[in-house]
Amino acid sequence: MINDIVAIFHDYWLLLLIGQYPNGPLGGLANTLILSALSIALAFPLSILLALARLSKWPFLRWPVTVLVYVTRGVPLLMLILWSYFLVPLLTGADVPSFVTMLTTLVVYQAAFLSEVVRAGIVALGHGQMEAAKALGHGYFGAMRFVILPQALYNMIPSILSTFVSTIKDTTLGYVINVPDLTFAASQVNNQLLTQPFQVFLILAVIYYGICWSLTHVAYRLERRITRRRAGLNGVRAATVIAPVKIISEQL
């Protein structure tokens, strides 16, 4: 068994790492990481806008975002991917690669989840900060920019990292629309070998485990450091700001 696994790894590591490149599009683990990083990079600013929309006093901003958040919480990601696969080529009129479709879905999905984290972070700061800023003459956007968001977003850093880990796990669903990622590469290996599916998928599981565990560990260490620093700035309140935030980011 172990020999099989070592042999498979030895023969196919390049395929698993970068897919069929240069004989095809970039794939494998590299593509998985690029897809995840790009999704988070785009989802993060979008999530701030969504959170502010949800907190605003205008219903025409609040309602669509609230609907979006409930839909992403209530509908399986797989279903949303099918929707994207159907709508994105339709709306852009062009032949869109599955990577782009997956990216779009993940950006909207993660932004909706992250916006709840931002919103919770802002609400957890309490009225006092906004009142103090207003009493000094800051307008709403000034207060947000200089007082509220710097605090809420700094507290969010561990959450962003754990959402990055969640995104890496979510990319596996691209399998159903043939996104050339690590899972797809593994299934290609399996289709070539045919007789060692357990070994192949065990390797797949171990690779994902290694990556996700390391990133989670980094997030955990960062969170400890942030909590310690915030406890110095803020008394005991810091711990309660970060705690509820982790739960929301567990999706898949």
């Binding site: 006092g128 900060q129 103090a132 009493a135 000094l136 003459g137 710097p150 700094y154 915030r230």
Partner: peptide, 18 residues
């Protein structure tokens, strides 16, 4: 502008911790 000309001190200080 008007508010910036009225100083206000809160019971809970509300300093900006960051």
């Amino acid at each position: 502008q008007l508010r910036s000309r009225i100083g206000f001190v809160f019971q809970n200080f509300n300093l900006f911790p960051h």
